[in-house]
Design a protein around this nucleic acid. Sequence first.
DNA 1: AATGAATGAGAGTTCATTCAT
DNA 2: TATGAATGAACTCTCATTCAT
Lengths: 209, 209, 209, 209
Amino acid sequence: MNYSEKQTQILTTAELLFSLNGFDGTSVRDIADEAGVNVAMISYYFGSKEKLMEALFSRRSDDINMQIESLLQNEEIGPMQKMEDLVDSYIERVMQKQQFFKIMMCEQVINKNPVIVKLIGDLKKKNVESINKLIKDGQQKKVFRKNVDVLLLMNTLIGCITQMLLTLDYYKEFNELQNIPDDQFFEQMKQKLSVHIKFLFKALLSYEA
Amino acid sequence: MNYSEKQTQILTTAELLFSLNGFDGTSVRDIADEAGVNVAMISYYFGSKEKLMEALFSRRSDDINMQIESLLQNEEIGPMQKMEDLVDSYIERVMQKQQFFKIMMCEQVINKNPVIVKLIGDLKKKNVESINKLIKDGQQKKVFRKNVDVLLLMNTLIGCITQMLLTLDYYKEFNELQNIPDDQFFEQMKQKLSVHIKFLFKALLSYEA
Amino acid sequence: MNYSEKQTQILTTAELLFSLNGFDGTSVRDIADEAGVNVAMISYYFGSKEKLMEALFSRRSDDINMQIESLLQNEEIGPMQKMEDLVDSYIERVMQKQQFFKIMMCEQVINKNPVIVKLIGDLKKKNVESINKLIKDGQQKKVFRKNVDVLLLMNTLIGCITQMLLTLDYYKEFNELQNIPDDQFFEQMKQKLSVHIKFLFKALLSYEA
Amino acid sequence: MNYSEKQTQILTTAELLFSLNGFDGTSVRDIADEAGVNVAMISYYFGSKEKLMEALFSRRSDDINMQIESLLQNEEIGPMQKMEDLVDSYIERVMQKQQFFKIMMCEQVINKNPVIVKLIGDLKKKNVESINKLIKDGQQKKVFRKNVDVLLLMNTLIGCITQMLLTLDYYKEFNELQNIPDDQFFEQMKQKLSVHIKFLFKALLSYEA
DNA sequence: AATGAATGAGAGTTCATTCAT
DNA sequence: TATGAATGAACTCTCATTCAT
């Protein structure tokens, strides 16, 4: 899909407001006002509020799928290094698109729209397949142990990141970091997460003879 | 708070519907109809839809706080065993009150109601304090290593469980367990989670001299 | 159906406005304003604008069905006299419920709502059956000739009356009766129609040996 | 008025959709889409939706006026024959332009647009004048009786035809003619109507010494 | 103590039309 | 001459809440 400037503006605004107030808690008028466009434009461009959400999901899904694919094509590095790159890539992605991932988290709870259910399902499936292939490769090369549960591995990865996302404010307060700038704080958190998850992954994956 | 039978009925129905359709996606009429009470009753008993949500949170928070306290009072078992009990207790609690934890997850994203923000914050604080005390004790007894990040530990615990909660359906499909009864499936998942998280905790905590 | 005073008020107002501006040309706000009730009340009482229309049709259909039945039960008068009574009854009914019959005429053209299509169909069917029975009786008694086309007979009856309804204003102007009061004018028209249609019916029905 | 091909296309499409869904039930977008033209074209060509309707009426009115005039100019046939020709001409016209006459019927009920009110009025006036002249001629030639009510005569003619138009589907069902092709069915109906109305007209007009 | 009736506010969507091109 | 983009206004309907009883 190629979106015009105004359409992109609407999508971005919607993403922000949906992540702040939820889908049902955001009115198309809110979005239109914030995006500086006419209310009718949302129906005009996207058909409906629901389809706006779908377009939003579709756009991000495409981005993410592309990222994952490009990452796994690099054949020069070993399985463990690749897994660590994958971890960092996940962390980076979620932290950069916080709003979208917040929306996705809620949408997984409130499953209504079949289009979005399918998009999330496809995304998950693609992720699992990619990681599965990587693990198989690592096992063949005797770098990863046998009997690895892919789903639990992904669970751990995504669970840790999203949980961090949900408790960022709490982290700030707990570590008394209220006064440092946001981007610096985010960098610290990403670093912390990276070290932590990589440690867990090594524990789960590394071959112990 | 002591609730009458009808009030409890409303709270339970609200919890179900909020977890299915979200707060904004559930109308007081939906709740009243499903609970078999008059629409005006909700305002009459709880003041407003918002306050109904608060009451719902309050009730569950109290339950959870009580559980945690009682768990940590047992002084007969060692720190690692206690930590493992804590893990199982968390898993059990989340799986049993799935609906509430789904609501809580969404409410952490859509932060609007200050009362609920405070309740969630208090709950988190209490959890952290309890675990902190437990870790300190373990470190003193040289069972746990030094330099343990409590927040990351909790993150991992809660992240893994809630992520499992969000992807239960996906698990079922992936492992082709669509035909086994729900309670049996839940038991399997709890067992899987238990082993997995305990393994992670040992990796994160155990003292390596 | 038993309607409250306010519901009746809404129905009557709706009937007036629908007959003046059509269904699509009348907004629920128009009806609410004119009836002196809140806009939300129409949805509250009738469910939707569409169902308000259905209720309106249903009410009148019931009335008309009852009238026809009671008319045909009188067994003391002969077939031709009964037919003439029927003609007068039709004229009276249409002239008295002009608004409803105007709506019905338009609804027969713009056939969309299946509920109303069915109501009109049932009404027509009942009418045809009643008249058919009357004609059969008259033929047995050698008062009516054979080979009477019931549908054409009804067509003539209803066609003449509704056409008169559509051109009342034109009649007034043509006969320069703009200055006489409405009810007096209506009486004249009814009288005119009565004589005219009875004459036609005699021509169509009377037995010529 | 001389219309371009596209304008004619719009007019024809509008006529169809207005007859199916009414004026207010048809959007200019519906017309534009169905006609395969740009939405803005309708305003561009006709000024507004209202004026499109007026153009549509104007076009048909001109046609009809021309037809009537040409019919009455033929001086070779007698009054009764002429009247019968007139009847057939009416039937033919209405059946051929069903869509327009359906619209006109509704517009006579929902009188709002003064331009259309005037067009319908003029049409009616012209009709009455023509028939009046014909009757006068027939009375002079002692073919028609005295004291003929022109308006009632026209009422009967138009009433019977339009009522038939409204109940065509019902006729089909009642006479179990659902399986014969449409044009054949229309022919049957026209024939039926022709015989019926001519019979009525003879009863109303023929001189009885 | 409990409720049916009622309502103002706001929801998403469609509308006929305009305007720059 | 013809049109895609855009919009203010109005649409129907649902909402949480209130109030008289």
